[in-house]
């Protein structure tokens, strides 16, 4: 089959990489979570600070996933690469889940910090819009029957969203300046206590690897499903 020529090599390579990636993810998650639970409580936030270790990495992966999805969409549109189509299609639900995770942990963190589960804080609102964007991309992909056309259409939307996201973020920041500053990226080095920095870094890496593991599993599943569908239709692979 023409459309599977490219993914075939991916299946071989990813099959070899995936077990190692999964083990590394499990180890890093265990180490990261142990560290996160063993650091001393924050002098202001108390134990609530530990939510940061599951919140910040989720937010990071949510954004990284969008960037990767938009990149895959562009590659798929320009070079009509079937593998990029699969990558784009499977990244959207994963990104949405990490965005939702970021929102939920953010609001759990917000309860002791702000005294409410939800405030219309700049970053939370941006992330809510990001979630809607993810859901819109998935909804568009599901609403179009033709497989290739569905991926390409949601890919165009993903790229438009990628151009728009910085503007959305800027506009929401303009709209409210309620939030504490961006502590990790502030000028003059991180303002976060070094004792928290290490567990956070490990957890960020663990989440990143978790995303890639899940992404590869989903891509492999999608390719196999497609192969099965082709077999059913044509009787040959």
């Amino acid at each position: 089959m023409f459309s599977l020529a490219n993914p075939k090599r991916f299946m071989d390579a990813s099959g070899k990489v995936l077990p190692w990636l999964a083990v590394a993810t499990a180890v890093l998650l265990t180490v990261g979570l142990t560290l996160a639970l063993s650091v001393p409580p924050d002098y202001q936030q108390g134990d609530a600070v530990r939510i940061m270790f599951v919140h910040v990495p989720a937010a990071w992966v949510a954004m990284m996933a969008y960037g990767l999805m938009a990149l895959a969409a562009a590659v798929g549109l320009i070079w009509r690469a079937p593998l990029a189509d699969v990558a784009m299609k499977t990244a959207a639900p994963l990104g949405a889940v990490f965005t939702a995770l970021g929102l939920v942990t953010g609001s759990l963190w917000g309860r002791p910090m702000w005294g409410a589960f939800w405030v219309w804080d700049g970053r939370l609102t941006s992330f809510l819009l990001l979630l809607f964007l993810y859901l819109g991309i998935m909804a568009l992909g599901n609403a179009i029957e033709d497989e290739t056309r569905a991926v390409r259409a949601s890919g165009i939307l993903a790229i438009v969203g990628a151009v728009n996201l910085p503007i959305i973020h800027f506009s929401v920041r303009w709209w409210t300046t309620l939030h504490q500053g961006e502590s990790l990226l502030r000028k003059g080095g991180p303002s976060i206590a070094p004792v928290f920095l290490w567990p956070l870094a490990v957890m960020a890496l663990a989440y990143t690897l978790l995303f890639f593991s899940l992404w590869i599993v989903r891509m492999r599943t999608t390719i196999l499903e497609r192969k099965a569908a082709v077999l059913r239709i044509t009787g040959r692979a």
Partner: peptide
């Protein structure tokens, strides 16, 4: 409207 609304939030 669902796919466009987040884009026109600004």
């Amino acid at each position: 409207p669902f796919i466009v609304l987040p884009l026109i939030a600004p």
